[in-house]
Design a protein around this nucleic acid. Structure first.
Length: 365
RNA sequence: GGGUCGGUCGGAUAGUGGCAAUUCCGCCGCGCUGUAGACGCGGUGCCUCACGGCUCCGGGGGUUCGAGUCCCUCCCGGCCCA
């Protein structure tokens, strides 16, 4: 259930109610693919102010398997996160694991990136796995091609994405019908996760429009825009938002998948986006690119920081960045100490979450 | 004193007579966007780039059209024998 609280020049301010609490939007979802953040704990993430967590169907299906998670009482109990969780469907792995997968009409054959064993993911599988995981928001299984792929590829991807979206919706309804009839007394009734559809179509406006309209005809709790920030320019990405956002229902949340940088999110919010997720802040942190709260960026591995004894970021939301110096962080990176990763990840994630909080605060409700 | 093995670009290494010279690390720079990747790409003798040129494999000399590679000698280091 989404409540649009205000529409301002800066964007939409809203609240998304889930089984594990409300999410204030615009919001950034940290990516904890396998049920964990790299370098920091979920307690750290909570302390930095994250409202939610994103996990991944493909990865959790491979390891430890949804049955283990279900047996543990669901993802929340398993990983110890009592806030809302969104699971991605595995659709992005169609893109990122393109060398070890084969797309078919009913889904996608993968070879496990861990041990090479074959596995199949389609709309039905994605729905069943995500329900067993017990996330609060689940995603349709989609095909995510590179945004720069030729039109023919985009047409195929949109066709499959729409067909799979329909199948996801059907399976979703079936799962809840059978749950309703087999209701055990101790199981809460309104635990239905929110189901989001995903708009594909690359940079082809007409395909984006078609996809957005047909998804709405099926009807979802929220609408994601996928297949962006995967090869196109920033201007092209914003053009697609300008095309798609006006077509999406006002009273449903809009989720720009895989984006991104703080400035990109600020712009996307003005175009009507409510939700983001991105691995970039954490990946950059691990690789030594540090985002400061004044909006600047430093590469801590550069030699100029070896003797920089000033705090990493005196205004940081991360306590580690006010108590430690750039020189020390530089040393930890050069020495390949894992603490480097922790300090850097806390910093980047902290700055990211704080920027989103500021963005929300700046919108008068 | 005798014998022997060895001295290659910051470190460690490869190197059939055609080599500005291999690989790894380090160092320098850049890139990462719904996480296969504590990762990837490029650079790393000098001439500001390309082209081209110059100088290079402990020092010196020699053989050769051509030497890091072969020969002599010196210096330095390891090991063995005295």
């Amino acid at each position: 259930m989404f409540t649009l609280l205000a529409t301002t020049a800066r964007g939409r301010r809203g609240s998304l109610q889930t089984a594990h609490g409300a999410i204030d939007t615009p919001v950034f979802f940290p990516v904890g693919t396998g049920g964990a953040m790299r370098g920091i704990t979920l307690e750290d993430l909570r302390a930095l102010g994250s409202q939610v967590l994103l996990c991944n169907t493909y990865h959790l299906h491979l390891m430890p398997g949804e049955d283990v998670v279900k047996e543990a009482g669901g993802l929340h109990d398993f990983i110890g996160w009592d806030g809302p969780i969104l699971t991605d469907s595995g659709g992005f792995q169609v893109f990122s694991l393109k060398s070890i997968r084969r797309i078919e009409e009913h889904g996608v054959h993968f070879r496990s990136h861990i041990d090479g064993r074959p596995l199949f993911l389609g709309p039905k599988e994605a729905m069943e796995i995500q329900h067993k995981l017990g996330a609060d928001i689940i995603m349709c299984f989609d095909e995510c091609p590179p945004s720069t792929a030729p039109r023919q590829k985009q047409i195929g991807a949109v066709d499959r994405t729409l067909r799979w979206a329909k199948e996801c919706k059907i399976h979703y309804e079936e799962i809840h019908r059978s749950r309703a009839t087999n209701q055990r007394s101790n199981e809460p009734t309104n635990q239905r996760p929110l189901l989001f559809g995903i708009v594909q179509g690359g940079l082809e406006r007409d395909l984006r429009i078609k996809c957005a309209e047909e998804l709405q005809a099926i009807g979802f709790d929220g609408y994601a825009i996928g297949g962006l920030a995967v090869g196109e320019t920033e201007a092209e990405m914003f053009d697609i938002l300008d095309t798609v956002c006006p077509l999406l229902p006002e009273n449903k949340p809009r989720y720009l998948m895989g984006v991104g940088r703080i400035n990109q999110m600020r712009t996307a919010v003005t175009k009507g986006i409510d939700i983001f997720d991105c691995v970039l802040p954490m990946r950059e942190a691990r690789h030594g690119t540090i985002h400061l709260s004044d909006g600047s960026t430093i590469r801590i591995l550069q030699s100029r920081f070896v003797r920089d004894h000033t705090p990493i970021d005196p205004d940081s939301p991360s306590p580690l960045s006010t108590s430690h110096t750039k020189s020390y962080l530089s040393h930890l990176f050069h020495a390949k100490e894992r603490a480097a990763e922790t300090i850097a990840c806390m910093q980047n994630m902290g700055v990211m979450l704080e920027a989103m909080q500021t963005l929300r605060n700046d919108m008068k409700i």
